[in-house]
């Protein structure tokens, strides 16, 4: 993505341990989550995560289209992750590409493992993720947005699904890479975790790490996911305590 190689490699880590945007190795970018901004969808969420801006909408459970995908003992989870043409520096060619297909698939599978799908046989839970502005870590931001949207849609599930990317930059294991760190760093490791059990339901890696670095990165990711989880809960509470806390069942 982008024009790697053409640019000079920026200073990714200062001698006193500051990263390109001033963060320490174990700090997240600022995260702001809004639950339920869309009226038409059954559930929705908007996430600003550093310079990422991601909107997610959830529909369902509803009838499955196309029909042959229907499963007669459970719901299926379908996901479409899409990046807007204007989400990156150089215009992205709109529509599905191999990257977005892959991300859609891993996100759908992550949710499939936390949603109580048996409660809605022969239906589909459809998750739409639109990346409006990208700055590394959009699959995690998208997953977080989609998870808040699923809760907002009233879908029964084991837990919210926080996600974060860990990586290796200038020889150091760091939390939540931003674009320059992703482009010029040595490794990128996005992960999603079920906080209730500590189970990982999404784990991918690009680049190289030693065994020790990987284990350090996983610990760091778990810590990051817990912080993201708090932000997700705050957003949902903010929405429902101001408008619906006393609502009838």
């Amino acid at each position: 993505m982008g024009s790697v190689g053409a640019k000079e490699v920026p200073v990714l880590m200062t001698p006193d341990g500051r990263r390109i945007d001033g963060r320490r190795w174990d700090e997240l970018r600022p995260i702001h989550i809004v639950a339920g901004p869309l009226r038409q969808a059954d559930g929705s969420a908007f996430v600003e995560w550093g310079a990422n801006k991601v909107m997610a909408a959830v529909y369902g459970p509803r009838e499955v289209h196309p029909r042959h995908l229907q499963e007669n003992h459970r719901a299926i989870v379908q996901c479409r992750y899409n990046m807007a043409a204007f989400s990156v520096d150089e215009r992205k060619r709109p529509g599905l590409d191999r990257r977005s297909q892959e991300i859609s698939k891993v996100i759908a599978e992550a949710f499939d493992s936390v949603v109580f799908a048996e409660e809605f046989p022969r239906t589909s839970i459809d998750v739409y993720i639109e990346v409006l502005q990208a700055n590394a870590g959009t699959r995690c931001a998208g997953l977080v947005a989609a998870s808040v949207a699923l809760a907002d849609a009233g879908i029964p599930m084991v837990d919210l699904l926080p996600a974060v990317a860990v990586g290796k930059v200038a020889g150091e294991v760091v939390l939540d890479l931003k674009k320059e760190e992703d482009n010029f760093g040595e490794a990128d490791l996005p992960m999603a975790m079920v906080p209730q059990s500590g189970r990982l339901v999404l784990l991918q890696m690009e680049g190289h790490m030693t065994r020790e670095e990987l284990s350090k990165a996983l610990d760091l990711g778990v810590k990051g996911c817990r912080e993201v989880h708090e932000k997700m809960k705050e957003a949902l509470r903010a929405r429902y305590t101001t408008t619906d806390a006393g609502a009838d069942a």
Binding site: A151, P156, M157, V158, D159, L160, V194, P195, Q196, K233, L236, R237, Y240, T241, A245, G246
Partner: peptide, 8 residues
Amino acid sequence: ERVLVLPG
């Protein structure tokens, strides 16, 4: 008592 709870 009616407490707002979230999945998980």
